[in-house]
Design a protein around this nucleic acid. Structure first.
Lengths: 193, 193
DNA sequence: CAAAGTCATTGACTTAAGTCAATAAAAGAA
DNA sequence: TTCTTTTATTGACTTAAGTCAATGACTTTG
């Protein structure tokens, strides 16, 4: 198992010493996903946290048979359905690999069990959670205040490579519009030949 | 100071004994707000948590001089800008009383200082935080998946009295539409005379 | 009480997203 | 490579929200 990326990601948040990391690492597993493979299914209680070593995933919900992408997870990001785990309620979302992925996973339960003896686990969980809260808050504000067009160009600024790695219709879902509308938004701003 | 409501609210989440509560209560202040009075101003770092004893407040942001209401807080709800406090960044939002309000307030800093010696403080903060996270997540999903009309009728179901206590144009802001559009949505579903 | 201000409704019109269908382009599989 | 599937674009049209302006209802307050 290659821990370089996750160690770097954790160290960006909080210094962690090798022996503490090794203890946690004993509970880590590797999971390889094929393209289009589903990692976590709707209707099940989510028990796993993950770290994306490579690849890209998305979370989406279904309504009347239509998909609504709510989030993307790329290399060096943490992934998990904390709400489902914390409430022990079935997940409303499906998490799917959009490319072949390598994840490091650990059961929430195991990770939480380190909170008291390895303070860095608890602190890093708090930092990641706060970041997610902040992102969610920002997205909410953007959905209220910005036009679809503004949301699209903000996304390009924030995650430029996302646009190139993910089908456009999923970006449209994420922005809350139809794929045809996103195509027309792009056309509007395309320099005329 | 009347602590009945806050004690009941805390006890719903987690049992708390009177002596622990009394210690925390020493740091509580009462704050009375007139209608339209601003509790927390945009651009300042938010240092206070609050509990609404009576009245109703809203949080809103400004963009190009237009208001966008992001949340309402009614009796027996906790209020505060955790993100601003945690990041020590200026608040992007304004919190304003929509009716005469009585708040119990406590500085985040003081409340956090009880985390180790009074575990109920930490646990209740976690529960409130998780509930807010869940609500934010739900609202986000609703903005993506539901029509303005559906969002309006969901809101009526979830907070029936909100509609009667708050100007309609603020409800429209909260739903992400113009007040004229909300008026027409209501008209569509009004039984014809 | 009258006057001023605020808020909701309505009408006429504009704008942009949604829908449906056809085609083109790109990606994957045999 | 060719065939198939998936995805993106475009056109024609519908629908609903946005905009602007006028009016009426309701509050507030001097």
């Amino acid at each position: 198992m290659n821990f370089d990326a996750i160690i770097a990601a954790v160290n960006k948040m909080i210094p962690i010493n090798q022996s503490d990391f090794d203890i946690v690492a004993q509970k880590l597993s590797v999971r390889h996903l094929k393209k289009n493979e589903i990692w976590e299914q709707e209707g099940k209680i989510c028990q796993l946290m993950g770290f994306v070593n490579s690849g890209i995933l998305r979370q989406y919900s279904l309504k009347d048979g239509n998909e609504f992408t709510t989030d993307f997870f790329m290399e060096n990001e943490f992934i998990g359905n904390y709400i489902s785990y914390q409430t022990q309620q079935p997940s409303q979302t499906i998490t799917e690999a959009l490319e072949p992925c390598e994840l490091l996973t650990i059961p929430f339960h195991d990770f939480v069990s380190f909170y008291e003896c390895i303070p860095a686990t608890k602190k890093s969980a708090k930092i990641v959670g706060d970041q997610k809260l902040f992102q969610l808050y920002e997205k909410n504000t953007s959905l209220l205040m910005d036009s679809p067009e503004e949301r699209y160009y903000k996304l390009i600024e924030q995650k430029p490579d996302l646009i190139n790695r993910v089908p456009q219709y999923m970006i449209a879902q994420y922005l809350g519009i139809r794929p045809e509308s996103l195509s027309r938004i792009r056309k509007r701003h395309r320099p005329k030949k």
